[in-house]
Simulated assay, not measured.
Amino acid sequence: MCADHKGHPYTAHKDDLLRRLRRIEGQVRGVQRMIEDDRYCVDILVQISAIKSALHQVGLSVLDAHTRGCVADALANRQQGEEKIDELMDVIRQFTRS
């Protein structure tokens, strides 16, 4: 949790994030069915690409909320600002790895 939040910054968008994750979960189940049904490789790969993109968008949304919430609050209140920036940079490096 951030210093001045009664939850995490993404909480304001929680319903949207959960809806998107449920949709991704359905897409993954769809790929499982495609493999069970011996569907064409390219069709499966296209669906996997769509899942990766959708999951990446969810991650970007959480990253945005963290930056604008936790990191901004730490800097504004001069509380562990450097630590929050280091943490943010570490997570960005991890998030952008392929």
Rank of each mutant, 00 (worst) to 15 (best):
D90P: 03
Y10G: 13
R22K: 10
I24G: 02
K52I: 08
H56Y: 10
L45D: 03
I24N: 03
Q47E: 11
A65H: 03
A3R: 12
A50L: 05
I92N: 14
H8C: 07
A50D: 02
V62A: 11
D15G: 09
I44F: 00
L21I: 10
E25A: 05
V31K: 01
I35C: 12
D43Q: 11
E82N: 11
A65R: 06
H8I: 12
H56S: 12
D73W: 04
K6F: 03
I24A: 10
H5K: 13
V91R: 10
I48Y: 00
Q94V: 05
L75N: 06
N77V: 02
V62F: 02
V46K: 00
A3D: 12
A74W: 01
H66P: 10
G26T: 00
S98V: 15
V31H: 00
R29W: 00
D86F: 11
K14T: 06
V42K: 10
F95Y: 06
E36R: 10
R19A: 14
R19S: 15
I85T: 08
D64M: 09
R78C: 08
T11S: 15
K52Q: 11
R33E: 14
T11G: 05
E36D: 15
M1Y: 08
A76H: 14
L21T: 06
L45C: 06
I51L: 01
Q79V: 12
D38M: 08
Q32T: 09
M34V: 04
D38W: 08
R19D: 13
G26Y: 00
G81W: 03
H56L: 13
L21C: 04
